[in-house]
Amino acid sequence: MFDLLTYPPVMRGLVLLLISGFTFPLGGVFILRMNILPIRYLLMHGVLLGGALGLAFGLNLSVTSFVVNLLLIVILNQSSRILKSDYGHLSMFFMVATIAAASVITARFHVPAKDTLTLLWGSLYASDTGSIISAAAIGGGIVLFALIFFRYLTAVFYDRDVAASLGINVNVFELIVMLITSLVVASAMQLMGALLLDAQLILPVVIAGLLATGLKQTMVLSCVLGGAFSIAGFFISLFFDIPVSAGVAIPAAVMFIITIFVRNTKGLKHEYIKE
């Protein structure tokens, strides 16, 4: 199994998985804490629109997807402010509008729909050095952002009114957080595919949230778990010859079930002792 690592695409895949596994869960923390889960579906559709545009006009698919997602986030954020509507409802609307636009472009420019849809499945082993640099830049960027703006993040996550009283421009800061999150989601989608990106982005954060008592702990634990699931998942996928994304999902799901079980058992014990 280990001799497979001598193949450059496999090795590159491992490096990518390590980078994303240890850093991207921070994006998951932002998504869960800001309660913007529906947005990641919008971003998935954004990738499809980006893919359709890229194929139609011969552009770089990754860059186009990134740009489309950034634009979608800006439009969503501004619409939410102007219309005073939450992200959940608006992202549903934009999701439909985005897929409609992707469909029109696919039909109008005769884009092979199958090629666009492959974006949803991820392509870890098809990645090149550029993908590694891009993932490292995004991963490093989000870690730096979390380190530098930890108190800002804590404030906005804790209570927006308190954050405003502390002098933070909450709307602008939230927009920045969402833009960074959209980059992470778009990048994770290329690696893991849209359908299983939650295994790397969301599950580690959910488990960390159950174990940690504070935000700093949650962030660190999410990254550690994300990295551990990625390494374990990579070798599971090699051993059982299954897609990497599924390999990552297996340890993450097992750990989630164990955590829930242990927590509930502890809770029951605690209640029993109290009684």
């Binding site: 804790y158 949230g209 504070g214």
Partner: peptide, 10 residues
């Protein structure tokens, strides 16, 4: 919220 944050962090 369900999300943990310590009193010290607040």
């Amino acid at each position: 919220t369900e999300f943990p944050i310590t009193a010290e962090e607040v």
